[in-house]
């Protein structure tokens, strides 16, 4: 468990080497890097303004002018896909980070705090978890209106209970450990014990699980945008592009493909990456998730 990483630097280097020996890992890294590259340099790579409407060019098939064709308003799909990637990835990274921070803090409190607080928090986590994601999303959008913030809140609400539970269980185990008792007997404060003695020993597995959750987050964003609960038009999002193409799928299937393929590629990339990361860093978790 916590005896795994001996010299952290060397262990990390060895892990990266092992990651690059796994074909699945290399494939995942390639896809993810490709998507990140597209998202970061979207402004340079796209020739057209992603929201520029030109009715004359509507429903054009893929060509050298429009690599992925155009949609019902004549907008260049390649530009929209690149900019949509920006939204998908930034939502994924930001909301995963937010879920991690909140999950870790709540998990530490539940695991280390008094019993009644632990029970109360578990009840809270279970209540949130019992909502289907789509229902949760609908309820929140009804309250706040469709926006990226709503997407982030839904993702955080969906992720936090699981993350907090993982941290809680491990904190509970470490609470009685001799090195925590030793710190107590030296007069260490609760924040110090949690920060210095507990947290470094519990976050490792969670980071790996969180990296495997990124595809789920991307799917949530795309799904909500598809349903019109996420970004507002005309902001480009893969889910929104999918929805644009959905109505014209019989005559112009490339619009749906333009929205769907990047979702598939990114999801696959992160899944492969996450699974290889898990196997490389923590073989005990193999076959889970």
């Amino acid at each position: 468990m916590y005896a795994a990483a001996s010299d952290p630097k060397r262990a990390r280097l060895a892990a990266v080497q092992r990651l690059l020996r796994e074909p699945l890992g290399v494939f995942g890294v390639t896809l993810v890097v490709l998507m990140l590259f597209g998202a970061i340099f979207a402004d340079w790579l796209s020739i057209y303004e992603p929201n520029k409407i030109s009715p004359r060019d509507r429903f054009q098939g893929p060509s050298w002018d429009h690599l992925l064709g155009t949609d019902q308003l004549g907008r260049d799909l390649f530009s929209r896909v690149l900019h949509g990637g920006r939204i998908a990835l930034s939502v994924a990274l930001f909301s995963t980070l937010a879920s991690l921070v909140i999950g870790i803090v709540l998990g530490l409190i539940a695991g280390y705090g008094p019993r009644w607080l632990d029970n109360l928090m578990l009840l809270f986590f279970d209540s949130i978890k019992s909502f289907p994601t789509v229902m949760l999303a609908l309820a929140l959008v009804t309250l706040f209106g469709p926006s990226l913030t709503a997407v982030v809140i839904v993702v955080v609400l969906v992720n936090v209970p699981g993350y907090a539970r993982i941290i809680r269980t491990q904190t509970l185990a470490l609470k009685e450990s001799e090195f925590v008792t030793a710190a107590l007997s030296m007069g260490a404060s609760t924040p110090r014990i949690l920060r210095v003695h507990v947290m470094p020993n519990v976050v490792g597995p969670l980071l790996i699980l969180a990296s495997m959750d990124i595809p789920v987050v991307i799917a949530i964003e795309a799904g909500m945008s598809f349903l019109g609960l996420g970004v507002r038009p005309p902001t480009p999002s893969w889910g929104a592009i999918l929805n644009d193409g959905f109505t014209a799928i019989r005559d112009t299937p490339w619009i749906v493909l333009a929205g769907g393929l990047p979702i598939i590629i990114t999801t696959l990339g992160f899944t492969f990456l996450g699974e290889t990361l898990r196997d490389v860093f923590d073989p005990r978790l193999k076959g889970r998730g």
Binding site: A3, S177, E178, F179, T181, A183, S185, R192, V196, N201
Partner: peptide
């Protein structure tokens, strides 16, 4: 000061010996 039974288990696993020895100063 108190010393605990398990020699290794009473030392925080992710801290270096140097930090462990001087932890009391920081606390």
């Amino acid at each position: 000061a108190m010393m605990f039974q398990d020699p290794v288990g009473s030392l925080s696993p992710r801290m270096k010996v140097g930090d462990l020895v001087t932890e009391a100063f920081r606390i």
